[in-house]
Simulated scan of single mutants.
Amino acid sequence: MNKVLLATRNRKKLVELQRILDGALGAHRIALLGLDDVDEYPELPETGLTFGENALIKAREGCRRTGLPTIADDSGLAVDALNGMPGVFSARWSGTHGDDRANLQLVLDQIGDVPDEHRAASFVCTVALVLPGGKEHLVDGRQSGRVLRAPRGDGGFGYDPIFLGDGQDRTNAELTPHEKDAVSHRGKALRELAKLVAKVLPPAA
C-alpha cells in the first residue's frame, strides 16, 4: 500500500481525509500518515499570503524531510464584512494557534453589529500534493454561506458551529461527517485530490 504523508498533527483532518480518499479511490488504497507517525522535524512557519502558498510550504517540507508523497492543506473562513478575513489567519485569529473557541468568538464579536443580510462568508481550502522528484499539484474547494450569531452543533471543528452553508438548515457542526464531506470546502478539494492521487500514484502492488 502506498504511504502518503498528510502534514498535520490534527487527527480529525487525518480521519476526514482517509475517509474521503477511501470512498473516492476504491481499490486504489493509500496508507495516510500524520506528522506524529514519522520522525519529528522542525515545522516551517506558514508565511504565505495565500492558502496555496501555505499549503505548498508544508507539503514541500514534509516531502523533503520524509521522502514520501506529501499532502498539506491550508483553509479558513473568509468573511465578506471583514474584507475576506480571517482568511489565511483563521487558525490563529485570536492570537493563539488552534484555539477554535476563541477564534470563533472573536469573529462573532467583530461582526456583532452586522445585519444578517451582510454576513456572507465562504470556507476556502487549497490542498497541495508534492511528490518526490519535485512535481507539485494544487486543488481548491469552496463552500459559500453566512455566519450565524451564535454557535450551533457539536460536530466538526474550527468555525463549523457558526457557518450555515447556502441551501442548508443546519450548520456544518450539525451535519454528520458524510453530510459535511458532501458540501464542505475541504470535501470538495479532497475529492479533486483523490482524482489526482489516482492518476499520479501507481496502485500499490
Rank of each mutant, 00 (worst) to 15 (best):
R191K: 12
R92V: 04
V4T: 04
T126D: 14
M1Y: 07
T50E: 12
R64T: 09
R11L: 09
L108E: 09
L148P: 14
K188Y: 02
D154E: 13
N103A: 09
L77A: 06
P151H: 02
R92K: 10
G23L: 10
K3E: 15
Q143N: 02
I30S: 00
T96W: 05
V124E: 12
D160C: 03
A173Y: 13
E43T: 01
K199F: 00
T47Y: 08
P202R: 01
T70H: 05
S184D: 12
T126Q: 14
L82H: 07
L21F: 14
N83H: 14
E53W: 06
P132K: 14
L106S: 05
D22E: 15
A128Y: 01
H137A: 03
R11A: 09
H97N: 06
E179D: 14
G158H: 01
I20R: 01
L5Q: 12
H137F: 15
E40S: 12
G52Q: 09
C125R: 00
A59F: 03
R186A: 04
P177D: 15
L68F: 04
A128D: 02
L196S: 00
V88W: 06
E179T: 04
K3D: 13
F89T: 08
G48D: 15
D169T: 13
V107Q: 07
A24D: 03
S122D: 15
K188N: 06
D22S: 13
G134N: 08
A59L: 05
D22Y: 06
G84K: 08
I111M: 13
E179S: 12
D99R: 00
K135Q: 15
E117P: 06
L148D: 13
G34L: 08
K180L: 15
L82V: 08
G62V: 03
G156W: 03
V139H: 01
A102D: 13
L196E: 01
S122V: 12
P115A: 00
T66M: 08
A189H: 01
G87E: 08
T126C: 15
V183C: 11
V15L: 06
D37L: 05
E136P: 02
A24H: 03
I71V: 15
K195D: 03
F123L: 05
N10T: 10
R9E: 07
A91K: 13
S94H: 02
G26V: 10
L44W: 03
L33K: 05
L21E: 02
R186W: 07
S75Q: 09
R101A: 12
R146A: 11
W93S: 08
V79Y: 10
K188T: 11
A204L: 13
R64I: 03
R186F: 06
G34H: 05
T96F: 05
R119F: 14
L193A: 02
N83R: 14
G87C: 04
A7D: 12
N10C: 09
M85I: 00
R191N: 01
V15N: 08
E174P: 05
D116E: 14
H178Q: 15
D74Q: 05
N172P: 15
C125I: 01
L6W: 10
K135G: 07
C63I: 04
